[in-house]
Design a protein around this nucleic acid. Structure first.
Length: 462
RNA sequence: UCCGGCUUAGCUCAGCGGUAGAGCAAUCGGCUGUUAACCGAUUGGUCGCCUGUUCGAAUCAGGCAGCCGGAGCCA
């Protein structure tokens, strides 16, 4: 019994083969007088394999009805192609038709707009561009795991459902089994969560960081890589309600170790994808973002610029550039500022650190100057903020003070504070939006096009 | 959530007060070791929805919806 061979193996074969079995979907069929050319794609690589179907096939009349999108199994000989565009082709000995796609198959043999393909997100992995995008997504995920595994980081699975409604990273989706048409209430009118599934209010996680810190302070170096949810009404090309985040956390590390890790990780992952997905990246370089490969090579070769927030403000003030929001110490950086720094001034990724404490989260470590925190953001051309991280405040008293200052309840963080109470050590970590790294690597400009089935405000189809 | 734009054939668009068009796709036929093949023919639309202005609305005005882009929030 002949085993199926994937097309990627045949494309890269080093010699002809008497008999092979390929299975896939028809991309196009071109008829000649006595035979037909059929191009088959099975998703194993960007390229199709060309099949020659001669009229001596038992079911040649059926073969001539093959439409774009139909599925087939083809047994034949892998031979040198007489045509110029491919090294090998298959001369079919037998063509089994699994299924003929009717003439309303939505994918035509031409370029479709991304907007249209979003309306048929269940079929877009059958296109060249989206096939490439999701092969890269898989390879990029693997690169993340490989990078951390090679460095001895442990992969920690932090909870998706959280009972802490104060992770502090944005609006949360509530999780409940209460009957929304008949909500149990307390005498004071508030919802009686004691009757809910967990006996208290529950939400989808917005970050695994606080949990991740606990494991770093036991296992040493850890990372999380999983889905994250934000109920923000964000309508942009860079935000989704459900996205994947990578959150490493290192014990016995400071903000400089953190920046080194972020830069090393991005450069490793970019290099990995360049090595493993050359054909797919070439497609993006040609049709999606001209100059993409040169941009990626620059990231791999030259590394990131590093400046402090104060230096960033000064650079912008002296630039003569007309900003809508004037750069002054203390402002939260706007998109225009991030883009100026990464795209115009440095023309490569830049890490900005030591932000004013007022604009950053409570858990970030207060610097010696008393007015900045050891936070760092990685700003990337075309995307803006891709990574946000910090050295964590490990001093119990300072952290409690910060929690109070920001109007939060100390008792809500008792378990978190335990880590500072018992054997606290300096530690640092960051959060990386996986889809944003996908956008960097592929040049795809909309986050909806780098997630298989994107979830955004008012959109949860498929 | 705010600002702007768009919505006409399966897809991409033109038409911008006088009653519906093109290219591609599809279907049929022809031709050819073809390469998103080529040539010819055919099919295909209550012009997003509602209301108004007008003798007459795809076209002008108002409202609504959806989509897209920018901003904010952030990853």
């Amino acid at each position: 019994m002949l085993k199926r061979t994937k097309i990627v193996s045949l494309i890269n074969a080093d010699q002809t083969i008497d008999q092979v079995l390929v299975k896939g979907w028809v991309r196009t069929r071109r008829d000649s007088k006595d035979f037909s050319f059929i191009e088959i794609n099975d998703g194993s690589c960007l390229k199709n394999i060309q099949v020659i179907a001669n009229n001596n096939l038992a079911n040649y009349e059926e073969v001539k009805k093959l439409t774009t999108g139909s599925s087939v199994a083809i047994t034949g000989a892998l031979v040198a192609s007489k045509g110029g565009n491919q090294k090998y082709e298959i001369v079919a000995q037998e063509i089994e038709i699994y299924s003929l796609a009717p003439d309303d198959y939505p994918l035509q043999k031409k370029k479709h707009t991304d907007e249209y393909l979003r309306t048929i997100a269940h079929l877009r992995p059958r296109t060249n561009k989206y096939g490439a995008a999701f092969r890269v997504r898989s390879e990029l995920s693997f690169a993340i795991h490989k990078f951390f595994n090679d460095r001895g980081f442990r992969y920690v699975h932090t909870p998706i459902i959280t009972g802490s409604d104060c992770e502090g990273a944005g609006e949360m989706f509530q999780v409940t089994t209460l009957d929304l048409n008949n909500i149990p209430k307390l005498p004071n009118g508030e919802v009686d969560y004691s009757q809910d599934f967990f006996g208290k209010a529950a939400h989808l996680t917005v970050s695994g960081q606080l949990n991740g810190e606990m494991y770093a302070l036991g296992l040493g170096d850890i990372y999380t890589f999983g889905p994250t949810f934000r109920a923000e009404n964000s309508n942009t090309t860079r935000h989704a309600a459900e996205f994947w985040m990578i959150e490493p956390e290192m014990a016995f590390a400071d903000i400089y170790d953190d920046m080194d890790l972020a830069e090393d990780m991005v450069r490793f992952c970019v290099k990995h994808v360049m090595d493993k997905c050359a054909d797919d990246l070439a497609l993006f370089d040609k049709f999606v973002e001209p100059g993409l490969i040169a941009k990626l090579q620059n990231i791999v070769d030259n590394g990131f610029a590093r400046i402090t927030y104060a230096e960033a403000i000064e650079i912008m003030q002296k630039s003569g550039h007309n900003f809508e929001y004037k750069p002054e110490f203390g402002i939260d950086m706007q998109t225009e500022h991030e883009r100026y720094l990464a795209e115009t001034h440095f023309k490569r990724p830049v890490i900005v650190r030591d932000y004013p404490k007022e604009i950053k989260a409570f858990y970030m470590r207060l610097n010696e100057d008393g007015r900045t925190v050891a936070a760092m953001d990685v700003l990337v051309p075309g995307i803006g903020e891709m990574i946000g991280g910090s050295q964590r405040e490990e001093r119990y008293d300072v952290l409690v003070q910060k929690i109070k200052e920001m109007g939060m309840k100390e008792e809500d963080y008792s378990w978190y504070l335990d880590s500072r109470k018992y054997g606290s050590v300096p530690h640092a970590g960051f959060g990386l939006g996986f889809e944003r790294m996908m956008m960097l690597v592929t040049g795809i400009a909309n986050i909806r096009d780098v997630i298989p089935f994107p979830r955004t405000p008012n959109s949860i189809n498929f």
